[in-house]
């Protein structure tokens, strides 16, 4: 396969991961997840008292997500991202353990060079682990973009996201091989969509194994972990 992408990557090559945990003092857990020029900081507070008592849930804890972009105010597009991230995280956090409480997850984007939702979900997973929130398993997310010539790029940059035909954000858990969250936008044939699922699964597994490595390093005493960029074979 030839390198057709602008940054010299292969179609099925994801950017190198880099992460750092516990970098905030006040937060119960925090982590920064970086994929080359995309970088997100996630902070977790919880379980804490519910701030807005009207939203309190009797049987489970409330998950609150706030997503701040690197520049400008939050728009309705960021609200949509918040909702996607919230839905993905709600499915792995054991919310029934702490009823009538709240778990807040706050994201600050450092720089956005594509795949930002995936980056945020991966950061949240590390931050939740750092905060010691009980979870069913780990979560890994990846973004795919489908081009006009039917090729699929894994982990696209902002430029590639802009030029592509359709974009899909997908999250898998470590527990089963089933989809936790998926949002696909743009015109895309069904065949190509189902063909790309094993690829995204494989990529999410890579993310999850990286998260495991980062946690292991954290326990051993090193705060930050990084890897080289990897190619995904499905």
């Amino acid at each position: 396969m030839t390198n057709t992408r602008n940054d010299g990557r292969l179609n099925n090559q994801i950017r190198a991961f880099e992460s750092e945990q516990s970098l905030l003092n006040k937060a119960d857990g925090s982590a920064r997840f970086t994929q080359n020029k995309s970088s997100v900081l996630a902070a977790v507070y919880g379980p804490i008292e519910v701030k807005n008592s009207r939203k309190q849930k009797i049987l489970k804890s409330l998950i609150e997500v706030s997503f701040t972009p690197s520049v400008g105010n939050t728009t309705y597009l960021d609200k949509e991202k918040e909702l996607l991230i919230k839905n993905a995280l709600e499915s792995i956090i054991l919310t029934t353990l702490h009823p009538r409480t709240q778990i807040s997850i706050i994201f600050q984007v450092f720089s956005d060079d594509g795949s930002i939702i995936s980056c945020a979900i991966n950061a949240a997973c590390l931050a939740l682990l750092d905060a010691g929130i009980e979870m069913q398993g780990l979560i890994g997310s990846v973004t795919l973009c489908y081009n006009h010539d039917k090729s699929i790029y894994l982990d696209p940059t902002a430029q590639e996201e802009k030029e592509c035909k359709s974009l899909s954000v997908i999250a898998y858990g470590s527990q089963s091989s089933q989809i936790i969250m998926n949002k696909t936008e743009g015109t895309l044939s069904m065949d190509l969509y189902f063909k790309s699922l094993p690829l995204s699964k494989e990529a999410c597994d890579k993310v999850i194994s990286y998260i495991k490595l980062a946690v292991k390093n954290r326990i051993m005493g090193t705060i930050s972990t990084n890897t080289t960029s990897t190619t995904i074979e499905s």
Binding site: L84, S166, K183, T184, T187, L188, F194
Partner: peptide
């Protein structure tokens, strides 16, 4: 759309979904 192409697919929830259910 009319050519059976996906324009929007959004799945979210507490439980994961399998490929067969999607199909």
């Amino acid at each position: 759309n009319e050519n059976f192409e996906i324009c929007l697919l959004s799945y979210s929830g507490i439980k994961p979904i399998s490929e067969t259910i999607l199909q």
